[in-house]
């Protein structure tokens, strides 16, 4: 309250007489020496590092990505422990999976990752065609969803549901959680597409795009582990 009125009066006096303004500035400087250090804030999001290294996105996004990676690490561990309880059951049920679906989805995600990487590079070069690359990556991601849809419906038609036994419980929970992340990733890619042309390298907007791209790559590599874990690792 008080300080607003005070700054206002300083402003008015400053316009009126230069001498008074100078005097006031001197007083304010004096006062500043006695008062506690003002809090400046932690500064802008994107900062140039001295060592020439570059944090993809911004440092904060890695709390999120590494955190999510650790949740999936727990999931992988829980699955392997669950598998150890009934290796014969898992082995027999695994035979019912179609490895071609899994392999096709791996390829789709790898292609989409290359497209996203190229898209980020295109933005760096301020190439206006960058959104096309992200749209192509979204198409690959949608392809993944379509393959999963066919795979799920085929399994459910054959009576292979999460309630059947532990293998199908893990299969649906693990792939379902991954699919949930992939759908979030598609949302992120859509936001990237919409912002690609307006992002200048080094800006906060560009940092968000880089961070979003890293999230997509994480969705990719989590599948790279889930595929062998669920489809390929036999007894």
């Amino acid at each position: 309250m008080g300080e607003e009125q005070a700054t206002e009066s300083v402003g008015r006096n400053g316009v009126g007489s230069l001498g008074v303004a100078a005097e006031l500035a001197g007083e304010a400087a004096l006062a500043r020496i006695q008062k506690p250090e003002p809090v400046e804030g932690r500064g802008p999001v994107v900062r140039q590092r001295d060592d020439g290294k570059h944090v993809p996105g911004e440092p904060g996004v890695w709390i999120f990505i590494l955190g999510d990676m650790s949740i999936f690490a727990v999931l992988f561990g829980v699955y392997i422990v669950g598998r150890g309880d009934a290796p014969a059951l898992f082995e027999s049920q695994q035979q019912l999976l179609n490895q071609n679906f899994g392999a096709l989805n791996t390829i789709l995600l790898l292609v989409s990752s290359l497209l996203v990487y190229s898209g980020v590079n295109a933005i760096r070069k301020q190439d206006l065609r960058a959104p096309l690359l992200f749209i192509a990556a979204i198409v690959c991601g949608l392809g993944f969803v379509v393959v999963k849809y066919f795979e799920y419906s085929q399994k459910i038609d054959h009576g292979l549901t999460p309630a059947l036994n532990d293998f199908w419980m893990y299969y649906f929970v693990l792939t379902g959680l991954h699919l949930f992340h992939l759908l979030l990733g598609l949302g992120v890619l859509t936001l990237i597409t919409l912002n690609a042309r307006r992002a200048k390298p080094g800006s906060t907007r560009f940092a968000l795009i880089e961070g979003g791209a890293c999230f997509w790559h994480m969705v990719d590599f989590l599948w790279i582990i889930l595929f062998p874990l669920l489809y390929l690792v036999g007894e």
Binding site: R49, D51, K53, H54, V55, P56, S113, L114, V116, Y117, A213, C214, H217, M218, D220, F221, I224, I225
Partner: peptide, 15 residues
Amino acid sequence: VRLVGLYFMELRLSP
């Protein structure tokens, strides 16, 4: 996974 991290995520250029 390591390749995706180092090359696509560009972690090979990171701190």
